[in-house]
Design a protein around this nucleic acid. Structure first.
Lengths: 235, 235
DNA sequence: TTTATTTGTTAGGCAAGCCTAACTTGTATA
DNA sequence: TATACAAGTTAGGCTTGCCTAACAAATAAA
């Protein structure tokens, strides 16, 4: 049985290795993600190595073992199922679900999670558009591009966000955006890539940074199928 | 913000004082309930006193302050709402709900609990028949008698159990009993008060100890209204 | 009322997770 | 290649929540 803290370390490692597009992570990187000091991470790494959940040598890189990885995926699965539940059944807004799901993801009960999944009718994506691992730990590989990649005059549909910070999510809502909303790119400033977009008739200017955090599919794409060369490697 | 452990101490105090029919508890008693050593309880009592959640002097009795009590009731409310949820929506059996609810009761989110309550349509009693405190912390006073109080030849309806141990609950199921089932008392042995009861046509012999742990209402009673002089003082 | 037993307290210790401060190793840059 | 900076490590310390062992107080029994 893993502690709440151990689960969070594994989950953070999964997140980092996914974002890096490799299967390696560093001590500082992990410390930043978890908002603790590198020294603390070092202690924990010894424990996780002892339990054969990570591979790791002094001054080397950290990788998840397959045991560690499957534990991390299980936590991710719970997190995303709970997010979906809160969003769909309890009218939580899009930017509220994360915080509560952070707590719920640590509840230990296989039966509960299986029932939850069934109750939600086996969803494949959470409210942020991220794929939900199935019971076997399989994750749909998800090909995505961002709003920053869409050409002027073209339309796309939002499927997910990259940044889950509350400030970002609130901004997204302010712009009038939500999952499955259509976005039309009206112009792009040469100098700083500032975009003017249209969402449900509402015009907004958004920065490049903002646009890079909005995952989209183009008009002929289907969620879960390739829609560009930009591969979002979750699995 | 209270820790998981602090919440459990307060909840245990509420339970003990309820069972004692007084508002006092002792160190050993609390240690037994929480399955820790008295010395550990002593440490925690100092902390809870510091936080003004309990009143307590050296070698004296422990009582909850109104602040401590309302915290404890909040935990109890969450516990019972989650039990109801698991039982009604996720097909958990009667004896499975407790363990998972023990974890869920510590999730911090007022919105979540309010939505949960609404989702369940403001239930007044949990699957064990125990009253669910409302948002203000009010608990329906519940007058109950037990199966041991029912006269030979009379019928009653089960509304709750006193003992929540898994072994007891499994035994209850084995006898064919569940909430709202009608029980007919066919005979009572003079010597040891052994009862023969009939539930859905099934005859069983049950001990006095067993019978004392089954709360019932008699035929003309309504749950939540007095049905005997035996008062079950939860509030 | 004296003694035995139960109940409660104190002191000192341990593991988990966190910290700071000082150090070492690795790597990028002049 | 020398050096400076970033990344990682170690040592020692803190809090929380638990423990055991020894002791003190209260209560029940003789």
């Amino acid at each position: 049985m893993l502690s709440y803290t151990e689960e969070n370390y594994l989950k953070a490692l999964l997140k980092i290795t996914f974002e890096n597009g490799s299967n390696e992570a560093g001590t500082n990187e992990l410390a930043n993600t978890l908002v603790v000091k590198p020294a603390t991470v070092n202690d924990m790494l010894k424990k996780l190595k002892e339990k054969e959940l990570v591979e790791y040598e002094k001054y080397g890189k950290i990788t998840l073992t397959s045991e560690g990885r499957s534990n991390a995926i299980e936590v991710l699965r719970k997190h995303r199922l709970w997010e979906t539940f809160l969003y769909e059944k309890f009218d939580f807004s899009w930017d509220e679900v994360h915080e509560v799901a952070e707590q719920l993801e640590h509840i230990q009960s296989t039966k509960l999670i299986d029932k939850l999944e069934k109750f939600l009718d086996y969803p494949e994506f959470d409210p942020h558009g991220d794929p939900i691992p199935n019971k076997k730990g399989e994750i749909k590989v998800h090909f995505k591009k961002t709003l920053a990649d869409v050409g002027v005059g073209n339309s796309c549909r939002m499927v997910a966000v990259k940044d889950n910070s509350s400030s970002f999510l609130q901004y997204v809502v302010k712009v009038g955006l939500g999952i499955n909303n259509e976005i039309k790119v009206l112009s792009r400033q040469e100098y700083d890539a500032l975009l003017v977009i249209e969402v449900n008739g509402q015009l907004s200017s958004v920065s490049q940074k903002f646009a890079e955090n909005i995952f989209v599919v183009c008009q002929n794409c289907i969620i879960g199928k390739p829609c560009s060369k930009i591969k979002c490697e979750i699995s």
